[in-house]
């Protein structure tokens, strides 16, 4: 039922709660939210390159890239697993969708764990130098988004278990996947900025 039909179907005195939620709202709203989130990332990256042009000793010697590379590879894997969930639900295959979501959440937790470990074992603090500051800021920005996405993915997983999604109705699942894919793009941008093109 489109929102227009919903509006016209409301008879005098009907409670609005009785009307069905219009389709596509989750997806459109998520795209706007992701756009705003991307602009925050763009602002931080612009700030990074702003100080980079001023600072010497850039980046500090001895910065390890092994763990960040592993995180980036895990991110690439989840690009596929979350899309696998969407492909599955489009075929009404709820069991496979559930498995794909479970694997995505597992990888997301692994990413979070690796990034936390990496920050905890850096040999410089937030205020040591401007490069270090942006390592913390950009990594924390990505981690905050991953935490939010895990909450969303777990909620979507629970609704999938409850059989709420089908081939015809999976807007919320798609919206969650879009948000997770944004987290992936953000993670890869952070990796590229801090470690590939510092």
């Amino acid at each position: 039922m489109s929102v227009a039909e919903e509006t016209l179907a409301l008879e005098a005195g009907d409670a609005p709660a009785a009307a069905a939620r219009p389709r596509g709202i989750s997806n459109v709203a998520t795209l706007f939210l992701v756009t705003a989130d991307f602009m925050v990332l763009a602002g931080l990256v612009a700030g990074y390159y702003g100080v980079r042009s001023q600072s010497f000793n850039w980046p500090p010697v001895g910065l390890g890239t092994y763990l960040p590379t592993m995180v980036a590879l895990t991110i690439v894997m989840t690009v596929i697993t979350v899309q696998w969930a969407i492909w599955s639900i489009r075929r009404d295959d709820q069991r496979t969708c559930l498995a794909a979501l479970g694997v995505t959440i597992f990888f997301a937790l692994a990413i979070l764990n690796a990034q936390w470990y990496g920050l905890a074992h850096l040999n410089f603090g937030v205020g040591a130098h401007t490069y270090g500051t942006f390592v913390y800021i950009l990594t924390a920005f990505h981690m905050a988004n991953v935490i939010a996405a895990i909450v969303v993915l777990v909620a979507v997983l629970a609704r999938t278990i409850g059989g709420e999604f089908s081939a015809d109705d999976h807007d919320t699942l798609t919206a969650a996947a879009v948000f997770w894919q944004f987290c992936n793009v953000a993670g890869l941008v952070v990796f590229a900025v801090l470690y590939l093109h510092p």
């Binding site: 602002g43 612009a46 700030g47 600072s55 130098h129 500051t133």
Partner: peptide, 29 residues
């Protein structure tokens, strides 16, 4: 709006956590 939030993150880290992104004599701007 997000540009303001990004800027506020930088100011907070500088002002509250002892970073120097905005301090000109410590490599910042």
């Amino acid at each position: 709006g997000p540009a303001l939030i990004a800027g506020l993150i930088v100011v907070y880290v500088d002002h509250h956590m002892g970073a120097h992104v905005l301090r000109v004599n410590r490599g910042g701007d």
